[in-house]
Design a protein around this nucleic acid. Sequence first.
RNA 1: GCGAAAGUGGCGGAAUUGGCAGACGCACCAGACUUAGGAUCUGGCGGGGCAACCCAUGGGGGUUCGAGUCCCCCCUUUCGCACCA
Length: 882
Amino acid sequence: MATKEQTEAAAQAASGEAAALEARYDPATIEAKWQARWDAQPDLYATEPLTSAKPKYYVLGMLPYPSGQLHIGHVRNYSIDDALARYMWMQGSNVLHPMGWDAFGLPAENAALKNNTPPKQWTLNNIAAMKRQMRRLGLAYDWRYEITTCLPEYYRWNQWFFLKMYERGLAYRKKSKVNWCPQCATVLANEQVVNGCCWRHEEQPVEQRDLEQWFLRITNYEQELLDDLAKLEGWPEKVRTMQRNWIGRSEGAEIQFELEDASAVPEGEEKARKTGTALLPAREDVKGSGKKIAVFTTRVDTIYGATSLQLAPEHPLVKEMTAADAGLSDAVAALLDQQRKAREQGDVGAIEKHGVYTGHYAINPFNGERLPVWVGNYILLDYGTGAIMSVPAHDDRDYDFAKKYGLEIKVVILPRSHGKAAADGELEPLLPFTGEDSLLINSGEFSSLGCVEAQHKMAAYAEEHGFGKATVTYRLKDWGVSRQRYWGTPIPMLYCGNCGIVPVPESELPVLLPDNVEITQLGGSPLARMPEFVNTTCPKCGGKALRETDTMDTFVDSSWYFYRYTDAHNDKAPFATETVAYWFPIDQYIGGVEHAILHLIYSRFWTKVMRDLGLVRNDEPVERLFTQGMVIRNGAKMSKSKGNVVSPDEMIATFGADAARMYSLFAAPPDRDLDWQEDGVAGVSRFLGRVYRFAMKYADRAKADAGAHGAPLSPESQALLRKLHQTIRKITEDFAGRWHFNTDIAAIMELVNMLTAAEPAINAGKVPDAVVADILRSLTLLLAPFAPYLAFELWERIGEKSVLLRAPWPKFDEALAREEQIEIPVQINGKLRAVVRVSADADEDTVREAALKDEKIAALIAGKEIARIIVVPRKLINIVVK
RNA sequence: GCGAAAGUGGCGGAAUUGGCAGACGCACCAGACUUAGGAUCUGGCGGGGCAACCCAUGGGGGUUCGAGUCCCCCCUUUCGCACCA
């Protein structure tokens, strides 16, 4: 049994331990305490009604795919939007800051194969795990607006939109060559093909297959999608450029070349025609065959220099020609084969140019000249018309091709500096010459025109004479949304033997995705192997019908999810128009630049469709976009194979959520790549500990006196308040748009360094309690967006009763922030020689005098002639001597 | 090939408008303290030199009283696009 003394000693030790704990920053305890409190307050992050007098602010981080684990990139992304959301709350805005799950997609099926877990269960488990991590990070989401795209409450509206688009002809079915990834066993959108390979399987060449597919007519909006990029001033220029290139508008002309009648070849040309290298002159007795080859060109001004036509190997006319010519057929097959091999080696761009002469000639409608028709492996079927006129003198690729096969080269434009007189021989070293600021020669009635002027006149001429017109071509293709996959939104369409394609009536939505599906690696949709899903009755005729078994591309889900957050539980409509009108456009959207094209162009398209359906009033979904940099480690992208993946859980367990979050903001400006260094997290954690200990030491004084400072202030108090207000000013200005949170956190560190250095003065009574209280209070507010757990704890410890989340952001006082004395560097001939102290409002003469009086300066300029003295008020003085 | 961004100590980075280069942090060095804790506190920390001073922001030129910042040429890295007619 213990003696009384022993018990007392133990009690003392225990209380000593408690005091020690108190004095030590222990994020695990603090964060657990506040997490429990926040979880118990569902209204904490709630939005106010639409009638709120506060300005609205919709801040959003891109929703994650529920892979099962947050990665460090998520921590960084969500630390940014969370800091911004918290700041806006403190600024008195009505903030919407939601989160959800992009929950359909292939990994769930792969996991099902591997672990024999149904995709739905796997996905929902992952969501639960990641939600736990988000709560642990202290992210300020109102989970009552959470959306999960794989649940029928959500995906039924994908189906509903699909029906609306179908009604309007924006969704259509066509047989088409599609990109097929054998590993995914599904179709890929053009946007998902990277270097001819699958975006998920970078080594896997994409195959072409012919399938009936559903498409969304994004090309209806191509021009508006392009034009409106100009409005998106709050988007990074980089993203706008990428989208502009993706849409790929080019202006040019389409010109019809007529194929010669092969049965009526003029006499005496047989030899010249053998190799297909010769350009043949215009002749009266040439006959057309009636067959036309349409060519797209952006340089119709060079058409007099065309010396051959080049067709894509898959061009329909080529099929016709090869049908009648076995030799040609073999040669074209060989071309295609080479192309396939090059693609498999992943080097489509560098493939050598090959061609085959078809034995046919076509007539240039401008001058009657006859051009050999070739098949070229560098011609793309799905761009323009799949055929080009080849102008070797004025196009790099055509030049290479012509040199290789000995085709003629005809110069028809000249640099302006060369005038009209230059002979062809002199020009040879210039070729291929492509400058548009040039003049036409050898071009009939168009000679001596400038290129741009000629382009317009020649297109108009072609139109007048019925063999062409000015046109615009886009690189953007319609969006193929069919996927032969199970884990996605069923496409709400039926096939009836009598009625053909029949949409599922709106009243029958949602078309539920069955749960009990066997996932296999066989090609085609697993749904096709479920008779109970496939077989149904036709709503039109009551006869037998089959359901569409393809599901939608998951990019459909993310194209409009942010609208759903505003009205997440609406079961009558995807959302209420008025609610969306209040919250949209999104004030600030934050995510990775990898979504610059796919997600961000699809969601712009979806917004425009919804606007035309009368559902929303905004033309664009996102006012300001911010793309944060990647998190790398040791200079390399984090990946499992490199073994350099950082687990957020470990980081949080060791240093706390505040330190992990704050480090992710401190280590680099948010738009740049961040090199993750664990020692850096430890450093931030140490800093938070310093803040904590300082606050604990002086919390009682802060509690005791929260009144006015009183005057006059001691120099020590003035210096501290000056630093405080300079810090407030810096951070406030930074939140307005510069967003260099790394320097904001550095500024807070400077403030804290100054505070700890001032401790002797504080302890000597030179800083009144009211000033200490003011500083502690403001410091806590400044920390709140970056380290919310610690800030909430300090707020309570210094006796504040209000909810920190909505406490007003501190205002900076310009008078307090102003320096009274400033240091002015003094240069002689641009070299720093001294620093003088003057009052902040000193005029030029005073500064000049002070500088000249400085001992060092006086010594250095003694006996020299002063040529000039430059005084930059409040900045610098430079004395120029000879 | 085309387009964009970037290049600053041993490392991450700062310098917002042409005005003290290296804030803040990491690592490291020296010291103090100790309840030995991923402690804490103090000081140092671009290079050369005893110093005065000199050199230094990828390289070379230029503009300017003054350049990391602006202009020209070149090099390197990263990202995007890539046979788009």
